[in-house]
C-alpha cells in the first residue's frame, strides 16, 4: 500500500466520522419497517382464509341423450335426482314461507290443501317452524307419492325484494338441517 493510498483511506474515514450525513440510517430504518409491514401482510393473507366459510348450492342440468357415431352407441347422462312437478319448493316472501310442490303451487284446486304457510315472527323467518314444516312435508310427500328418494331436492324461490343475507341464512339453515341433499335457488327470468 502506497503512502497516498493510506492517506486517502484515512481522509475518507475522517470524512465519514465527521460528517452529519445520516441517510444510511434513514434508509435502513425505512427498509426494516417496510419489510416488517410486508411480512405482517403476508402472514395475515396466509391465515385469513381460515375465517371464511361457504353455503353451497347446485344449478340443475338437463338430462340429454347423445349419440356417438364412431362407436354406434347412444348414451345418456345419468342423474340421481330429478326435478319435476312433484319436487319440493319453498317460496320465501317478506311475510311467510310457502312450502309445497310445483304442481300444487300452480294449481288453484290443489293449492289450499297442499300448500303449507309458515309465517315469519316479527318480520324474521321462523326457522324452528320451518324445520318442523320441512320434516312433515317430507313424510307427507313420501306417503302420498311413494318417492322419498326423489325428495332430496328442494327448490328455493325467494321474492325479488328480499335482502341477500336473509336468503343465504335460510339456505344455510336448510343445508345444516340435512333434510335435503341438494338445494337449488330458482332464478326466474330477467
Amino acid at each position: 500500500m502506497t503512502h497516498s493510498t493510506v492517506l486517502k483511506l484515512k481522509i475518507s474515514k475522517m470524512k465519514k466520522k465527521l460528517s452529519d450525513y445520516r441517510w444510511s440510517t434513514f434508509a435502513i430504518i425505512l427498509s426494516i419497517t417496510g419489510l416488517l409491514i410486508t411480512l405482517g401482510l403476508c402472514l395475515y393473507s396466509v391465515t385469513i382464509s381460515r375465517n371464511f366459510g361457504e353455503v353451497s348450492l347446485d344449478i340443475p342440468i338437463a338430462q340429454v341423450q347423445f349419440e356417438d357415431p364412431t362407436l354406434k352407441i347412444t348414451a345418456s347422462s345419468s342423474s340421481s335426482h330429478l326435478i319435476d312437478s312433484l319436487t319440493a319448493i319453498l317460496v320465501l316472501t317478506e311475510k311467510s314461507f310457502l312450502l309445497s310442490n310445483l304442481d300444487a303451487l300452480t294449481n288453484a284446486d290443489r293449492y289450499e290443501e297442499n300448500v303449507e304457510i309458515i309465517r315469519h315472527v316479527d318480520g324474521e323467518p321462523d326457522l324452528g317452524n320451518l324445520k318442523n314444516g320441512l320434516e312433515k312435508y317430507k313424510v307427507k310427500s313420501s306417503r302420498a307419492n311413494g318417492r322419498e328418494s326423489l325428495d332430496e331436492v328442494l327448490v328455493v324461490y325467494p321474492t325479488s325484494a328480499l335482502p341477500m343475507p336473509i336468503v343465504i341464512q335460510v339456505i344455510n339453515f336448510i343445508k345444516s338441517s340435512h333434510l335435503f341433499s341438494h338445494v337449488v335457488l330458482a332464478g326466474g327470468t330477467l
Binding site: N51, F52, G53, E54, V55, S56, L57, D58, I59, P60, I61, S160, I168, I171, N172, L185, G187, G188, L190
Partner: peptide
C-alpha cells in the same frame, strides 16, 4: 339473479356463497 343466469349460461353447476365463520 343476473349472476345466477350468467353461471348457468357458463355451464357451471356448483356455486357457493362465501361467509365469515
Amino acid at each position: 339473479r343476473p349472476i345466477l343466469l350468467a353461471l348457468a349460461k357458463a355451464k357451471i353447476t356448483r356455486y357457493a356463497f362465501e361467509t365469515i365463520i
